[in-house]
């Protein structure tokens, strides 16, 4: 799999190699939307092949798809762009299942894609806001490790203690 982005000759291309060996050829302007890659480019300079042993090809592909969209849209500076980006982001996270969301979030965090982390964490938050504690434990596969009585104490502390 490789991306098709060879419209301008002046743009430098980077090769990103995922943990499973899949490589992506991307414009520098797209890849540097990710803080981690930006740092590597600035530090190493001449290196064109970047290995990312913590990210699977499937999720790296999705992260780069997001970067490409946002890098492209950032170059045109007309007014409706913000709206277009918002709409595209909404579509991007709309049907993500929990497993994909988790891996994408881990990838975005590892690659320091701050804006993408914001988008994905907001999606996770929308799935859990307003839920009961028991539902959260189920969603996050968390078991309560409180001693008997401790949970009750915290719950009680959260209700009005007015004298």
């Amino acid at each position: 799999m490789s991306s098709s982005s060879t419209t301008t000759t002046t743009t430098r291309l980077l090769m990103l190699k995922a943990s499973d060996g899949v490589t992506f050829e991307v414009e520098e302007a797209v890849a540097t939307k990710l803080g981690a890659i930006n740092n590597m480019v600035e530090e190493e300079g001449s290196e064109d092949l970047i290995c990312l042993p913590n990210v699977n090809g499937k999720f790296l592909g999705m992260v780069l798809e997001w970067c490409k969209k946002h890098a492209n849209n950032n170059t045109n500076s007309d007014k409706g762009n913000d709206e277009v980006n918002k709409w595209w982001d909404k579509e991007f996270v709309m049907d993500l299942d929990q497993n994909t969301l988790y891996h994408l979030l881990m990838a975005a965090d590892y690659l320091s894609g701050t804006e993408l982390v914001d988008l994905l964490t907001e999606k996770v938050a929308s799935m859990i806001r307003g839920k009961k504690v028991e539902e959260i434990r189920e969603t996050f596969k968390i078991k309560s490790d409180f001693l008997p009585g401790q949970e009750e104490e915290i719950r009680k502390k959260n209700s009005w203690a007015f004298e």
Binding site: T121, G130, K131, V133, I154
Partner: peptide, 15 residues
């Protein structure tokens, strides 16, 4: 991104 009251409630999830 969570509302303040959800966060206060989620203290009970685990340690």
């Amino acid at each position: 991104w969570l509302p303040a009251d959800s966060l206060v409630r989620f203290k009970c999830v685990n340690k």
